[in-house]
Amino acid sequence: MACEPALSIEHVTHAYGERIALDNVSFTVARGTCTALLGLNGAGKTTLFSLVTRLFAAGRGRISVLGFDINRDPGEALRRLGVVFQARTLDLDLSVAQNLRYHAALHGLGGYEAKARAAEVLSRMDLAGRAGEKARNLSGGQMRRVEIARALLHAPPILVLDEPTVGLDINARAAILRHLRELVAQTGLTVLWATHLLDEVELADEIVVLHKGRILATGSAQGVIAAQEAKDIAEAFTALIAEPSATSAESPP
């Protein structure tokens, strides 16, 4: 188990009816690394996240989390994942602390342990003074930080985030990125970060370029740039998605 990658996606294909959303997608995320899943809107990132978090099961292929197959052993796989979805998932009628308490209960954590961990993660996300506040009174950036704190509450070794900075202003985005950098550097957390924003890939050790349901490139940002003989990641990404082979899969919904 020790040599297993943190996250392994093997030949995953998924379709909604006739529409192919993911076409034979394979990549791995090494332990303790931050990997950016880069793709335009509709590339299949959210579908991949839904499969990784077992919101639904892949049509074909295998996904494993620290060696645990997400379909055969979902409980063990999911307890090792912290998840931040693209859509806001806080209960706005509950306070920050109550949202965290609910999440803790869903992971079988209660009592003192849940309280202690809630205090720890809120402090780490600079939200220690906001525990009693209603979620609906928070700004967009603060809500996102609460969601990240909540995802870390059960102390998962892997954090997956689906476009967590969408809709945030530049300061809120910067704060999220800063917190993520600190987390990765200080704790060795494994992070899979989906984004369509090219400037966010600087956070990553590795990038995976997903376009129209297919993986176009994987590797370090410098490696992808060099392979495309581009001067920066934006040029490399543009060159990748312009290739005819990149458009052979059908558009995801």
Binding site: C34, A155, G188
Partner: peptide, 25 residues
């Protein structure tokens, strides 16, 4: 970007060998 984990990090301590859930959970 550095990714070296700090020793004894408290934030991600899910025991990788832990299996199943107790009745209490």
């Amino acid at each position: 970007m550095t990714t070296a984990p700090a020793a004894g990090s408290e934030l991600h301590r899910t025991d990788e060998a832990r299996r199943g859930f107790s009745l209490r959970q």
